[in-house]
Amino acid sequence: MLSIKDLHVSIAGKEILKGLNLEVKKGEVHAIMGPNGSGKSTLASVLAGREDYEITKGEIYFHQQDLTEWDPDVRAKEGIFLAFQYPVEIPGVSNANFLKTAVNEIRKYKGLDPLTAVDFLKLIKEKARLVELDASMINRSVNEGFSGGEKKRNEIFQMAVLEPELAIMDETDSGLDIDALRIVSDGVNHLRSDDNAFVVITHYQRLLNYIVPDVVHVLHDGKIVRSGDKSLALELEEKGYDWIKSDPASAV
């Protein structure tokens, strides 16, 4: 589904990703772990199409198509979703209008008729239940005045409504208390299927107790230095990132 080859990315002339390779197949959950500054969020931003990042070398394919030339909205329409580390507050636009616009834009792209108001409401209610979001928040402005946990739940809620093929979660666990973490994880586990894939970016192993990954990668200094199964996350938790930093060679 997703194939990243020798990816080099710079921001403001500084190289952040230095030859990253990643293969994600349908039905898989990949965890990407790494210390601060290793390039985790850069990877998420580049996949979503944030404009300030420059790809200096390498390729990104989504279903064998080069996605680097796609605008952010096209990536979303093609089935890529980024759950933001810092979701943006948009006063004056209600969650309902925002999501309805998004759903119908994506449907239009796929040649489908827009959802009726009734069907949309049904969809919203069903998905809100999934992440235990209060229905009243549907009519509030996007993320405005939401707590950190509510914002993250809102990200997963949007993910549930838009049903992407590839979901990238950028440190969704940061700042979540244990209850919110459980709700978010339950939501994600519910959405997992043989037809979609998740890339879970996290600093801590904790989230991976709830969302159990098929593959764990360790990112260090712009490259994936080690990959393994879920036990790698536990090992990393135990030994700390200094283990990787001090001996990146042992990774290969």
């Binding site: 952010p72 943006v88 998004a102």
Partner: peptide, 28 residues
């Protein structure tokens, strides 16, 4: 820009994203 990117990342095309934000600006 951050808000525009957020809207676009949900599949909303750039023109419509700008329209939504303009409406939001006025609705205050």
């Amino acid at each position: 820009e951050q808000s525009l990117f957020y809207l676009k990342s949900r599949g909303i095309d750039p023109g419509k994203a700008a329209a939504l934000l303009t409406f939001a600006f006025a609705s205050e």
